[in-house]
Design a protein around this nucleic acid. Structure first.
Length: 292
DNA sequence: TAAACGTGGCG
DNA sequence: TCGCCAAGTTT
């Protein structure tokens, strides 16, 4: 019932097209780590057109990759994807690995992304546990109002137990369907149980849809945080055609102590390079003259 | 294990 | 307006 529903209602996302390569899937999964589908789609298309293979991306300077990443957020992901591309190009013959342990060894690839590549890139039997699947399992299997704190190995075991027997491609499709269910129907707020293909078997519905009772997720602020300051600084570098003088970065945030601390952390993360005493640039940037 | 890590849309 | 939330990973 879940797969037929998916057959009929799956969103037409660009990375789901049949001609998408495992590399295309890997790129999409990096971008989708904490960034909504709607913002990823246009950027993903540009990336695949520009860098259709891992080696193509590996050949690009990090600065180009960071600019192309734009405002997707968490730019360390762009650096890790570039590093993964380099490793795939040099150590895997330019082919995205199709073994779980090899995928997990790539920078920026964790339990979710590795299995997503197996399922969506290679149509292999793999349980994917993301925020959507965690919520669906919490409700449909355990009758809870929502997923509480991470229970990583238990969720993975639950998800694996749900996978249908038979061809691996069918289990892979089931994984996609489970995610889709959480993304479009079994949503965090106001789930649309009417029209849910597993409504009749849902433990949460069976229990009368009880409220979530677990601990509240810690609310994370953004305004005034180092994350915002780092974002501002990086935005200056992305927007400039080349290296910028320190004064350009100084203008991005008034609190000098916080600004300096954040610049140091960006340098430490490899997201920014210092070219000389007074000029800064995205890593791998060509050109040496600072512009005002 | 908890905290850090960007950004923007929506109710 | 503002809190919530979005296909996580790393340290």
């Amino acid at each position: 019932m879940l797969i037929p529903w998916f057959d009929a209602h799956a969103r037409d996302l660009p990375w789901r097209r049949p001609d998408t390569t495992p590399w295309g899937v890997l790129v999409s999964e990096f971008m989708l780590q904490q960034t909504p589908v709607g913002r990823v789609a246009p950027v993903w298309a540009e990336w695949l057109a520009r860098w259709p293979t891992p080696s193509a991306m590996a050949a690009a300077p990090q600065a180009d990759v960071l600019r192309a990443w734009g405002k997707l957020g968490y730019p360390r992901r762009a650096l890790r994807l570039h590093a993964a591309a380099t490793e795939i190009a040099t150590a895997h013959g330019d082919r995205v690995p199709s073994e779980l342990d090899e995928l997990l060894a790539l920078p920026g690839v964790g339990a979710y992304t590795a299995r997503a590549v197996l399922a969506f890139g290679y149509h292999r039997r793999a349980a994917v546990v993301d925020t959507n699947v965690r919520r669906v399992i919490a409700r449909a299997v355990h009758g809870a109002g929502d997923a509480g704190p991470a229970r990583t190995s238990a969720d993975l075991a639950d998800a694996e137990r749900l996978l249908p027997d038979g061809p691996q491609s069918r289990a892979a499709r089931y994984s996609a369907a489970l995610m889709e269910l959480g993304a479009v129907l079994c949503t965090a707020s106001r789930p649309r149980c009417a029209g849910c293909p597993v409504h009749a078997d849902c433990a949460w519905v069976g229990a009368g849809r009880p409220e979530y009772t677990g601990p509240a997720r810690p609310t994370q602020r953004y305004a005034g945080t180092d994350r915002q300051v780092r974002g501002r600084l990086l935005d200056v570098l992305r927007g400039a055609p080349g290296p910028v003088p320190r004064s350009a970065l100084d203008a991005a945030w008034s609190d000098a102590a916080q600004r300096d601390r954040c610049l140091l952390s960006l340098l430490d993360d490899g997201l920014v390079e210092q070219l000389d005493g007074t000029s800064f640039a995205l890593p791998g940037e060509r050109g040496t003259e600072a512009r005002t």
